[in-house]
Design a protein around this nucleic acid. Structure first.
Lengths: 352, 352
DNA sequence: ACTCTATGCACAATCGTTTGTGCAATCATA
DNA sequence: TATGATTGCACAAACGATTGTGCATAGAGT
């Protein structure tokens, strides 16, 4: 049973006294086109099955100049947010008979550059990139060579590549309106990495929502500098230990929210009662906290799927100029936001 | 700047009036071996840089019969536990100049079979597989052909392939001893998928720990049938609504624990006071719950790394018979387990 | 000037496919 | 029986790299 020597077209051809080309044509369903007899067809197919023939995709790709492979470049695949995107990229790609080569750039631009080079060296037909987001020259090169790419989540302002991302602005705007509708006016914004587009958009949404309700954003309430939980923890502590009169926290990532939650627990502030919390980026565990956390969910399943679709449009040569896609976020109301209006019974209208 | 036509060795060769072989040798640092003059070397290297030459790995792999690629087969990459493993597999592989082709089998054995076939068709040099765990014939085939593989996390009893997994038995055993040391005797075990090896080992550890302390395992307290949070939720509700006198819950996965947490919140049982909870599988958020949850952490970073190392040992032809690796788990004491001994001041010895 | 060795590179086969073209054999037709 | 069309397949070039071998030319030695 153990086949030491690789089964190739030639193996089959020799055993049947046929030529390699004939075998190839049969196995590629080109028998009709090349008038291969039914007898030969069956013989070939039987033998292929018998030998458990697996066509060598390398040779195939080389000849066809088509690898049926996409590159996926992610800053940190262990981050559930990216992992979910990766999952649906893989599933959608596979449904089109494409495989994924995965590169984790560890939030390093250098590794991102190297990864893209590597992937191109492996002749991937297209790239799906969640950029680290600091530099964009290497991405511009792709653009200049019109190499098929889709950028996901982190947009870069000086880039004109197809992308798919959440509508971070609107998501944040709506979330903050919700807080305001519930009577909150002193709302802290615990932000992530300031240089990145999701953060910028969310902060802008936060500011505009306040402004639209006649509240002047207090820049002392916009705090933090990373997406990690440490930031959320520290900033929350700092804020509350100073007796800042905030009534609500708006955490710009689930990890930041996690940090805030720990800080609040340490300070014995009851979420949804003493203080309110709202998180960008829903994750399963947030529904299981006590109380369950109200969040702004991003459709990462859709993001993954659509990224692949946009990429395939490029591969198909459809240069439709519907380059970018902003996916609406979904507001998930749970129990972490207190309704101050009900408590105070004042002029707030609670028309949802 | 836009290079429409792919740069190959030939491009460089033609521009310099050299042969393809010479160019190849220079770029592969074989100039000395083949006595290429320094002048030629520099000319070639300059031109390669100038044209931004990227060697076509397909052609290279085909010729060398070496793809520098590994296949990674995972039941669900969006599961943080697997995502972490994937991350370190990627990092370790890349440090050896190998790439990873990722396949998400969506917990389906059929997809697992198809994935492995696909990956072999792409001539990966080895496979790292977290099996769905239901069937193993296709894995036996690999074994029979002595194709390099490492099995991760979910072992299959009828398989004799190198593996790396947590020492689930010991982890569970120690955890349950900890509960018993804290005065718990009525301990429920909320299990995952019964057919899978991690679950079997953990349940065995649970039973043996009880037995070692003279407690007869009550099989009514071993409940559940999946790794998801739904199971944890339902089983906890069922158990407590019947006024079962359990004082502690041992959840066999973080998701099961999550379900339990929600159920307990609904029932107004305070974790670490009214009831104790201990989770297998640490995840960041568990440290941020109120109270922080005591867990059995698995070294998934190490698992990923070691899986790659075991694979490379096989690739190097080292058939050392140190096939399997069981990694010790790490007990992380937080605040979700009540110490009944302190409350009751009885004969429990609180050594340690 | 003639041989000999060393230098510096080119030629061609190869990896496993795909595919345009060509060439026998078969068959029908005149 | 010669002619033409059809059938059924083989030959060979290509994809882009690697590598054993061979062949000029240059320089050294006598």
């Amino acid at each position: 049973m153990a086949k030491k020597t690789l089964t190739t077209l030639q193996t089959i051809a020799e055993r049947l006294g046929l030529s390699v080309s004939t075998v190839s044509r049969v196995l590629n369903d080109k028998s009709d086109q090349y008038r291969i007899s039914a007898r030969t067809q069956h013989a070939v197919q039987d033998m292929a099955r018998q030998l458990d023939f697996r066509p060598n995709q390398l040779a195939r790709s080389l000849r066809l100049r088509k690898t049926q492979t996409l590159g996926l470049v992610i800053p940190d695949i262990s981050n559930p947010f990216f992992a979910q995107i990766a999952r649906h990229v893989e599933i959608e790609a596979r449904s089109r008979h494409y495989s994924i080569i995965l590169c984790d750039t560890q939030e390093s631009t250098d590794l991102e550059i190297e990864s893209i080079r590597l992937l191109r060296s492996r002749e991937v037909e297209g790239l799906i990139v969640v950029p680290v987001g600091q530099k964009s020259d290497h991405l511009k090169t792709l653009q200049a060579e019109s190499f098929p790419v889709v950028i996901v989540d982190r947009l870069l302002s000086d880039l004109d590549l197809p992308y798919v991302a959440s509508d971070n602005y609107q998501g944040a705007y709506d979330a903050v309106c919700y807080l305001i509708d519930h009577g909150h006016t002193r709302i802290a914004c615990l932000q992530g990495l300031p240089g990145t587009s999701p953060n910028q958009q969310r902060v802008r949404g936060y500011r505009d929502a306040l402004g639209a309700h006649g509240i002047v954003p207090d820049s002392d309430l916009i705090r933090g500098d990373s997406y990690g939980s440490q930031t959320g923890y520290e900033q929350t502590l700092q804020l509350l230990l100073r007796n800042s009169p905030v009534t609500a926290l708006f955490a710009l990532s689930n990890l930041i929210g996690l940090g805030a939650i720990r800080a609040l627990a340490e300070l014995k502030r009851r979420i949804g009662k003493d203080i309110s919390l709202l998180c960008f980026d829903d994750q399963p565990y947030l529904a299981y906290m006590d109380p369950p956390i109200t969040t702004v969910d991003q459709q990462n399943t859709e993001m993954g799927r659509l990224a692949v679709r946009l990429l395939f449009e490029q591969l198909a040569g459809q240069t439709k100029e519907n380059k970018g896609l902003l996916l609406p976020t979904q507001f998930i109301e749970r129990k972490s936001v207190n309704n101050l209006c009900l408590e105070r019974r004042d002029k707030c209208d609670s028309t949802h």
